[in-house]
């Protein structure tokens, strides 16, 4: 059948079959070409297609398999996470040799363990937490890549970030980094609780001024946050403040709850 010769009558003959997906390919092409210029046939086709689509409602309904929901949500969560330069930068293959592993390496493993514990704690029945779990699970995958970097790094170093005032007196915070790979992370326990609408914010002291290094939240006072360095070398200090959600351009009250100097 020539696709150019199809008229309204011919289209009417096949549009029901087309709407069911049962027309032959050459018929389908002829119909599609015709309805692109014929409003009347296009409307009739829409009607037939809606009727065909309703057929799916007539079949017995079976529940989708258990586990499929989480698989799909996890994948959606993974895709929704913005690509961050730090993750992309350190997405590397397996290390050929593990580097010096010492105290900072132990901190790196603790960092991963904390993530796992948080994940376990987050498991629950409500959808909000399940969404969070899905994101956290992907975070662990990303963090694993960073772990590979740490495991082969031979310049790992760790500093304690000390409480400045009584507010964070119970906090135990460390910053572990590799200058060579320009990556690092904060690990903390016992952070003071946040009020609604507040976040923690990390600051590097660069040339005497605080520069935001990002915001983060805690889970029961625990935190873990990737915190990379610049090529120019470590900052002179690292501090943590409590800021309004979204973070601030400079420490809101000019006071750190935790701070450490990098020294020489």
């Amino acid at each position: 059948m020539s696709t150019k010769q199809m008229d309204c009558e011919q289209v009417a003959e096949i549009l029901d079959a087309y709407s069911l997906g049962a027309s032959e390919p050459d018929e389908a092409r002829g119909l599609e070409e015709h309805v692109s210029d014929c409003v009347r046939c296009w409307e009739q086709l829409n009607e037939a297609q809606r009727a065909a689509a309703m057929l799916a409602l007539a079949i017995p309904v079976e529940d989708a398999p258990a586990g499929l929901e989480e698989r799909i949500i996890r994948e959606a969560a993974r895709e929704s996470r913005p690509a961050t330069s730090i993750f992309d930068r350190f997405r590397v293959g397996w290390p050929t040799a593990a580097g010096a592993f010492g105290l900072a390496g132990v901190a790196a493993l603790v960092f991963a363990a904390v993530l796992q514990v948080q994940l376990s704690d987050l498991r629950g029945d409500n959808s909000d937490l399940e969404n969070l779990v899905a994101v956290e699970e992907q975070t662990i995958v990303d963090m694993r890549d960073i772990m590979f970097v740490f495991l082969r790094a031979d310049d790992l170093a760790t500093l304690d970030v000390e409480p400045v005032g009584p507010e964070a007196a119970e906090a135990a915070v460390t910053y572990t980094w590799s200058q060579k790979d320009q990556t690092g992370f904060i690990l903390c326990e016992g952070l003071p609780p946040l009020a609604e609408g507040q976040v923690y914010q990390a600051w590097f002291t660069l040339e005497g001024s605080p520069q935001s290094a990002g915001t983060f939240s805690s889970h029961n006072g625990s935190c873990n946050m990737p915190l990379g360095l610049t090529e120019s070398g470590p900052p002179s200090g690292l501090g943590i403040t409590i800021e309004p959600e979204g973070g601030s351009t400079s420490p809101a009250h000019g006071e750190y709850i935790l701070y450490t100097s990098f020294g020489d």
Partner: peptide, 10 residues
Amino acid sequence: SSLVYSASLR
């Protein structure tokens, strides 16, 4: 999901 799964399965 049930509707989509059922239609796919059919």
